[in-house]
Design a protein around this nucleic acid. Sequence first.
DNA 1: ATATTATTGAGATTAAGTCTCAATAAAAAA
DNA 2: TTTTTTATTGAGACTTAATCTCAATAATAT
Lengths: 128, 128
Amino acid sequence: MRKTKQKEFVLSLLQKRYDHPTAQDIQDQALQEGVKIGRASIYRILSDMVSAGQVRKLLTKDNVAHYDFYRPNHVHIVCKNCGKIFDLPSEKIFLQDFKQNFGGFEIEEQEVELFGLCKECKTKNASI
Amino acid sequence: MRKTKQKEFVLSLLQKRYDHPTAQDIQDQALQEGVKIGRASIYRILSDMVSAGQVRKLLTKDNVAHYDFYRPNHVHIVCKNCGKIFDLPSEKIFLQDFKQNFGGFEIEEQEVELFGLCKECKTKNASI
DNA sequence: ATATTATTGAGATTAAGTCTCAATAAAAAA
DNA sequence: TTTTTTATTGAGACTTAATCTCAATAATAT
């Protein structure tokens, strides 16, 4: 496993961003910052990072994969209207621990997603 | 909003199945049972049912949408190896209620997904 | 410095999902 | 019941996210 500037760029970008970019977003930003990464590489790199547990792949209702640097006990709030994904700071919530055994199925990870209308969509819908 | 045999078939199929079929799976089964439903209709019907809250759209790591009849307080256990989605019977778990307000974001729905290795994949991997 | 081989990326390919619009059929009106 | 209205269906074209291939490149070992 070799260290390449493409891999370094993708990981550091995801560490810095909190807005769940798509593969396309990542490629665009790389190009903007003068780092050339091909489409095949973007997907290969992201997929490897997901397998390694460094990155989380989020599948939203727009049917495009979004990527998120892995941060434990990290809850997503998804707007049912605009589809945007927000992070709920872990200190704002007490999170139940589901890591137990259910009929031979040993739980290693848990993910909690909450759905509702974000502030913006709520006020927009109210005024219609 | 009209009652059609296509809509009736899709909803009753999802009520009966617990294995989270894809749009393709649903179309295949319809054809098998002699009900002809076109691709456009399958997607239109499913999408409407998701909007109406009758059906849940699950996005898995195979990047294909799976559909599930809506059953409240229903936890999914996803195998990290084979990707299969299992249901955790609600009586097997005490589920935390997240429906509260977080900074203007009013939570209406919650979804808990648990990840690990299913029985089958665990024994398979152990023997390698 | 040279050899080895993992990684990259252009471009072809696949396939899930969407869109269009004429034909169909469900419900309303006569 | 028959006719009219209009929501719904579906064949097929289209879009596009994601995958695959393989020669070129560059990271590490020798």
